[in-house]
Amino acid sequence: MKLSPSVSIKQTQTGLEYIEVASSLCNAKIFLQGAQLTQFTPKDQKPLIWVSQDEDYIKGKSIRGGIPICWPWFGVNDKQGWPIHGIARTQVWRAEEVNEKNDHVEISLSLPMIQVSKDYWPHKTGLKVIFKLSKTLSVYLINTNLGDSDISFTQALHTYFPTPDIKTTQVDGLQGSQYIEFGKGPYEQNEIINFASETDMVYNNAPLIQTIKTEDGTISVARENSTSCVLWNPWIDKAQRLSNFQDNEYNKMLCLEAANVKQDTVKLAPGESHTLATIIKWAS
């Protein structure tokens, strides 16, 4: 991969390599493990991405925060012992290309399928992610069916957002959709969402744009090629059981995830492609 003036390759003390972007428009970090973005801060604005202060950046373990890529399944697999949220977020991806222009930096990575156990995924698939970095963050996860039979999968861009106080945070724009929570539902979403307990909502027929209203400002979160999304906060009890997560950090984060899950499962015929996208920016 040929670098540009604003892009460099660095390494943590634990040996994980990451791509660092320091452009006139933003600062960002993208780890090769999991192709996981862990920082995005637009110029003269507050960070748009959250990572736990207890994260230890260990090889083979997904980073607690940023944007983990859940693929080729989301959540717990039906097969006992299979890793939660698939296998892409713990694999080392290949940095493919950097393009720097006046108004953005674009970085692409691909997952070498030779690394993926056929026990988990026996299909011939191309998997690529493109990060477009300006004052807006756009992430495109591209699947291509390279085999000769149909495939289906679920996936998510599991984005962690920061907030000064979850108790005063609201999520607007999901009204009119339906959700399942803790295996129950579907329920109708009729109001703006406030947080007062553990939240684990999986939405279908969701509008394409939501806003997260925090004391630091309003974050706009848009999706493409996705009618489903996930809203999550572990709250007090679950926060104490999570790895790489301080007990009180539930109060400083939430996840709002672009997804293709449940009725929104992706099905691709041979030669077809699908692009899941999330587009994130400060709206105010």
Score class of each variant (00 low, 15 high):
31 F>Y: 15
234 P>T: 04
67 I>Q: 07
186 P>K: 12
81 G>A: 09
75 G>N: 06
274 H>W: 15
88 A>T: 00
196 A>G: 12
176 G>V: 09
32 L>E: 01
146 L>V: 11
120 Y>V: 10
100 E>C: 10
140 Y>T: 00
204 N>Y: 04
22 A>G: 01
61 K>Y: 00
76 V>Y: 00
176 G>N: 06
145 N>H: 07
147 G>A: 03
229 C>M: 13
216 D>Q: 09
134 S>M: 13
274 H>K: 05
278 T>E: 11
34 G>L: 12
283 A>D: 14
230 V>H: 11
265 T>N: 05
47 P>F: 03
105 V>P: 02
213 K>L: 14
224 E>H: 04
11 Q>W: 05
265 T>Y: 02
197 S>E: 14
198 E>G: 01
267 K>C: 10
72 P>L: 11
116 V>H: 00
81 G>Y: 11
103 D>N: 15
60 G>W: 13
59 K>Q: 10
98 V>R: 06
26 C>A: 15
28 A>K: 12
206 A>L: 09
193 I>C: 01
70 C>F: 08
54 D>C: 08
6 S>V: 06
110 S>W: 13
272 E>N: 10
276 L>Q: 02
64 R>M: 06
183 G>P: 04
269 A>I: 03
145 N>Y: 04
153 F>M: 05
263 Q>A: 10
2 K>Y: 08
20 E>R: 15
201 M>F: 07
269 A>C: 07
11 Q>H: 02
22 A>F: 00
167 K>D: 00
136 T>S: 07
268 L>Y: 04
49 I>A: 05
5 P>L: 03
138 S>H: 08
210 Q>N: 12
277 A>R: 14
129 V>S: 01
103 D>F: 13
12 T>N: 10
92 V>L: 13
88 A>F: 15
141 L>E: 06
11 Q>E: 14
212 I>Q: 04
214 T>R: 08
220 S>P: 02
128 K>A: 09
142 I>S: 06
248 N>M: 11
146 L>C: 06
201 M>H: 11
231 L>V: 02
282 W>S: 00
160 Y>R: 04
179 Y>W: 13
77 N>L: 04
191 E>S: 05
61 K>C: 00
281 K>I: 05
62 S>V: 15
197 S>P: 00
58 I>T: 14
50 W>S: 00
14 T>Y: 03
253 M>N: 01
244 N>T: 03
262 K>M: 14
221 V>L: 14
15 G>S: 03
51 V>M: 12
247 D>V: 11
145 N>K: 09
107 I>L: 12
267 K>Y: 08
9 I>E: 03
234 P>R: 10
282 W>F: 05
269 A>H: 13
167 K>N: 06
64 R>T: 04
273 S>Q: 12
197 S>V: 06
244 N>L: 09
214 T>D: 06
235 W>Q: 09
96 E>I: 06
282 W>L: 07
104 H>A: 13
